[in-house]
């Protein structure tokens, strides 16, 4: 229960950072970093998947409520958590990770390459869903892909900076 409370606090903190800082950051008109996805990356693999899905829904709803983008972050968060569940199931070995004392995907599990691909994949899925609803046009398909890739890279960079600031490797 304490752990759930801890995640709620981290979630609120990330939501505030997203809406107060990253929403206003204008690197380029098409790059929109959304590092709050980090919350999903640090969730323990053993978490209740139904609880995580519902939690992601309310987390997205909170960001939408703060940022005035009703529905978009919610749809992206819910889809990210749903897809991440299957990625974890097929690509991560929970028992092996537990033996190594890891509760979620970390660089030490299979090296930084694996970690980067995994994190970028999750971020890309999130950003793709977000920008699909944001642009909402078939003719902008390539723009959506382009913006999603670069925004996911910007988010990945932001997450790494955040991790370094927090004292992680």
């Amino acid at each position: 229960m304490i752990e759930v409370g801890r995640f709620i606090v981290v979630g609120l903190f990330l939501a505030l950072i997203q809406t107060l800082i990253f929403k206003e950051v204008n690197i380029a008109w098409w790059i929109k970093p959304m590092p709050y996805v980090y919350l999903f990356l640090i969730l323990p693999l053993s978490s209740n998947r139904f609880g995580v899905l519902i939690g992601a829904f309310f987390f997205g709803l909170t960001i939408d409520a703060f940022g005035g983008s009703l529905g978009m972050h919610t749809a992206a968060c819910v889809t990210t958590v749903f897809v991440k569940n299957y990625i974890d199931l097929y690509f991560l070995d929970e028992n092996s990770m537990q033996l190594q004392g890891m509760r979620y995907m970390q660089i030490d599990y299979k090296g930084w390459q694996w970690y980067s691909i995994y994190t970028f994949g999750i971020l890309f899925i999130h950003h793709l869903v977000y920008f699909i609803f944001d642009y909402f046009s078939w003719t902008s398909l390539f723009t959506i892909l382009f913006v999603s890739i670069f925004s996911a890279l910007a988010s990945l960079l932001s997450i790494q900076i955040f991790r370094l600031l927090m004292g992680h490797k």
Partner: peptide, 24 residues
């Protein structure tokens, strides 16, 4: 149940998008 819950939550989010965003 899991995919169905996902679809339900996604539909709820999408409904909000179509309801509150004029362009969409």
């Amino acid at each position: 149940a899991y995919p169905l819950l996902y679809i339900l939550l996604l539909l709820s989010a999408v409904t909000q998008i179509f309801r509150y965003h004029f362009y969409q």
